[in-house]
Amino acid sequence: MFILVFIISLLLYGGLVYYIGWRGLHWLRPESSSRRFTILYSLVVLLAASSFIVGRMTGLTFINIIGAYWMACFYLLLLLVPLAHVTVILLRLTRLPRHGTQKWAGFITLGLLIFFMAYGSFNAFSPVVRDYEIQIEKGSSSLDSLHIVMAADMHFGLLSGKSHAERFVEKTNELNPDLILLPGDLFDDDVQPFLDQEIDKVLSKLHAPMGIYASLGNHDRHDGTMMELIEALEQGGITVLYDETVDVQGDFTLIGRKDRIDRERLPLNLLTKNINTEKPVILIDHQPYELNVAQQEGIDLMVSGHTHRGQIFPGNLLTDAIYENDWGHIQKEQMHSIVTSGFGFWGPPIRIGTRSEIVSIGIEFE
């Protein structure tokens, strides 16, 4: 079954690449093309189209970078090229010269591609701070309020690299949090670029008096063991909660879950079985599923990522249809769910309709 789906997906991808390449060839040489030019053009398109797959298979840095930017261009061209094609067909019904309309459609498409690539890169690498203020009807004698900074989906690796990590540390520390929570996808499928760039040393500069805690996501994996990933994070002073609970200074309980795709993930009721739910309970869970279960188990705040809010429009329409809360804050009785669109990105290094972000959560206890 998997092989059949892979073949169908590959054929569909190949067909779309052929269509985009064919329209590009018509724009570059609308009347006639020499055989040599056509072969060279086809070879360039073929190499670009295969770079993402080849890069993931081989791990070659240069090919991976080309593949990531190709996927950004490919996604945008899937939206722009059909629009330009239809426009050219409609303009044939007018007296405008066919050659001229096709040329201008090509130039406008190229201009829009460059604009959206620049705009999307700005959104991806220029994070903003989202502020939320919530109230929890619990507390302790020593805790009236709590300031949490939360971020997820950094996907630290080749493109979301050391400079982006330094940006994250600088902006997070500027917020002066009591507690930092990182709900998953800190790696981009492989721990090696993270270690090669010494991102663990960058993250070690994060500061929060009540600690820095993380859960792992679906991209936090590689060819080695899970403990190697956990050790890489803990070298940077981050405590990974891997289906574990921790009492923080006797004021509240943190629960960090394994990712939803982990077959050994424990049910939430086993993790909450021996904790004191009369004090605040905060859940770190990468994927924002089963909000009703979290509410029933006495969770007061659940922080998540994973959705990227679709990352590139119209992906947000899909995530909004899949998740009860795909971005932002909702409340279900006593439980608050806050989902971030993410600090980094996966695949195409652009964001359109979304923005790289860090979340600041102010909690008042009653």
Rank of each mutant, 00 (worst) to 15 (best):
L91M: 15
V339F: 04
G217S: 09
A124K: 04
K273M: 09
V88D: 12
G217W: 05
L112T: 13
L46I: 10
S360L: 07
L76F: 02
L159F: 01
E333G: 01
L113C: 11
V248P: 01
R23E: 14
F107E: 12
H308D: 02
E366M: 10
G100K: 11
T58G: 10
L28S: 12
L47W: 08
A68T: 04
L179T: 08
Y242T: 00
L182G: 00
G67V: 07
L79C: 13
E324Y: 03
T354C: 00
P97F: 10
T340C: 06
V240M: 06
S337E: 03
M154I: 01
S51V: 06
I3T: 13
R36M: 11
L78R: 00
G347I: 05
R35M: 11
G106F: 06
G67M: 05
D196I: 10
H308E: 03
T61G: 00
I338N: 04
Q249P: 05
E170G: 00
Q197A: 14
S32F: 04
L206A: 09
L159P: 04
I63C: 10
D300S: 07
G59S: 11
H219T: 07
L203A: 05
R36S: 14
L271Y: 06
R36L: 15
W346H: 02
I134H: 11
Y19M: 12
T272W: 01
L12E: 05
P193S: 12
E137C: 02
S160L: 03
G111R: 10
L112R: 06
D153Y: 00
E133M: 07
Y213M: 10
L4Q: 11
T354M: 01
E357G: 05
E31M: 10
E364R: 14
R355N: 06
G328I: 00
I20Q: 14
G224Y: 13
E234H: 03
Q197D: 15
F62E: 14
V248D: 09
Y119K: 13
V86S: 09
G14Y: 07
L40T: 13
S142G: 11
Y41N: 09
I350Q: 01
L233S: 07
D200P: 01
I338Y: 01
D300V: 02
T307L: 10
T172F: 07
L301Y: 07
V202T: 13
T319V: 14
V303C: 03
L143G: 05
Q135A: 13
L25M: 14
L46S: 15
D220E: 09
Y119V: 10
H85D: 15
Q331C: 01
H164I: 00
Q192G: 02
D320C: 09
M335S: 03
L12D: 01
V88N: 00
L96C: 07
Y323H: 12
S337V: 09
H147N: 13
H164R: 15
H222C: 04
R260F: 03
Q311C: 06
T225Y: 12
H286C: 01
E198Y: 08
G111V: 08
N316I: 07
G305Y: 08
N274K: 14
K201W: 04
V240Q: 04
V81Q: 01
I330Y: 05
